[in-house]
Design a protein around this nucleic acid. Structure first.
Lengths: 202, 202
DNA sequence: GTCTATAGAACGATAGAC
DNA sequence: GTCTATCGTTCTATAGAC
């Protein structure tokens, strides 16, 4: 058997995939921190350890790179809510958890939240982006709806609204509260969140 | 008495004030429609009937012009909620009104909403802007709180949360719902809004 | 030898500053 | 109205995989 080189050589396809991943990773960080217009393709390429040639070999342009991030990431930030809806533990202990760790956990998603909201603004002004975003919103709503249905089946809880509408209301309120907490971390926000959850989840 | 010129001559100070006002008016429209980066100072100057020189004579730069708009305008857009809280008419007729005119009335505030949200993004990345914004949010919360207190005094309604927290929740939910309706006008949104109001206002 | 991912220079347009 | 910087995009050369 021949010597295996220190670094296994990548096939051309593998190398390209890896390049693409690294560019996306750099772009995610930079777009989140500096925004769409505040991030240049030179910065993205350099951060990832490439040059602009690599960007244009993998994406048709800046907008395309930005949209690719949406596809990878839109579902991120919803994980906490998902845990909460489907969780088996008592409402009381969930409330305690929220009251205790609300702000510290939120800090981690600061850049991501900025990215998401910036995307909303783009979407309001660009029909192509709007369509991509609303499709993602639809998927999220359906997913939460099914989580809620499971919860109802398990606990027998009664909701004050139809499940679909409850899911939408939850999605809306959670996002708005998160944004407000990042902009202006008033200490009563976790309490408001818990109370709203109690009202919405019955 | 000498002839009065067709147009009364303005003093230099008056002329400068007028120029400033016209620039602000043009900037308000353009920033709202095309966003911060989508609006050039050339566009602003030209729309107002001046040249870029006039902009730099009245503002220290683009950012300064943008911030000047915040001071004039942040409180806009909340009028509907205010009317609703303080209104004397029955909850039923308010609900009907919302269900009927929700989307048509919203269309008018499309540009304004985009501007507001864009400002939120700026605020997350710029501490100076963040301070200005949170101060405005504080004022809005206080105002809604006092509206709610009046309503309680008048109707004797009981709220499920303390007034201050109810005001915050209302503010959050209304803004989030408005944004969602502009991005993705699902027909059930007004119903969700009415139900949430019922839950929050008791 | 051929193909292609990437490097890197060059271009052209835009827009803020003064 | 000019100056200058920036940046997205395009183009060509090259090195390495096939």
């Amino acid at each position: 058997m021949k010597d295996i080189p220190k670094k296994t050589r990548l096939s051309r396809a593998e190398a390209k995939t890896q390049t693409r991943e690294e560019l996306l990773k750099a772009a995610r960080t930079l777009f989140a921190r500096y925004g769409f217009h505040g991030t240049s393709l030179d910065m993205v390429a350099e951060t990832a350890g490439y040059t602009k040639g690599a960007v244009y070999a993998n994406f048709s342009g800046k907008e395309d790179l930005y949209l690719a991030l949406l596809d990878d990431n839109i579902e991120k930030g919803h994980k906490d809510l998902e845990d909460l809806i489907t969780s088996d533990v008592s409402f009381e202990s969930i409330s305690n958890e929220i009251n205790k760790n609300f702000f510290t956990e939120l800090e981690d998603s600061r850049d991501w939240a900025a990215f998401t909201v910036e995307f909303f603004v783009h979407a309001m002004r660009d029909d192509n982006i709007r369509k991509k975003l609303t499709e993602r919103i639809r998927v999220a709503q359906e997913y939460y709806t099914s989580c809620l249905e499971k919860r109802i089946a398990a606990t027998g809880a009664e909701l004050p609204m139809p499940v679909g509408q409850t899911a939408t209301a939850l999605l809306l309120f959670t996002n708005a509260l998160e944004l407000m907490a990042l902009l202006n971390p008033q200490p009563e926000l976790p309490h408001i969140y818990v109370r709203m959850l109690k009202m919405l989840l019955g």
